[in-house]
């Protein structure tokens, strides 16, 4: 309930956040905030094997970032962006 209020203020009131969502969706990984054309902060070089993965909800993250998040979740494994159950897109 609080979260919904939060989103409401967030989206309707402050442009700062609209731009945050946009950046998070399109150019940067929403978890580590590094650009999608680079690698996650656990990998040293862009040449390291650090691919992007998509969920069935169509949200995209570095594979290392989303796997770390899912491993830290004991009960439900939810997409950090939309809170739907995370399923890797085939």
């Amino acid at each position: 309930m609080l979260l919904d209020q939060f989103n409401f203020h967030y989206i309707s009131g402050w442009t700062a956040v609209a731009s945050w969502r946009w950046i998070a969706n399109d150019e940067n990984c929403g978890i580590c905030r590094m650009p999608f054309d680079g690698c996650c902060p656990d990998c040293k070089l862009p040449g390291d094997d650090c691919p992007l993965v998509w969920g069935q909800c169509s949200h995209c993250f570095h594979i290392h970032c989303i796997v770390k998040w899912l491993n830290s979740q004991q009960v439900h494994q939810l997409c950090p962006m939309c809170r739907q159950e995370w399923k890797f897109k085939e």
């Binding site: 939060f6 203020h9 956040v17 929403g30 950090p80």
Partner: peptide
């Protein structure tokens, strides 16, 4: 809730502070 069981790794410090500010606005 977003600092406990509804936390998401997509939040950052801006998101945390503005959500606390909105809690002052709308106590639960």
């Amino acid at each position: 809730d977003i600092l406990q069981n509804r936390w998401s790794p997509t939040y950052d410090v801006s998101a945390i502070l503005t959500s606390i500010q909105s809690l002052l606005h709308d106590p639960n």
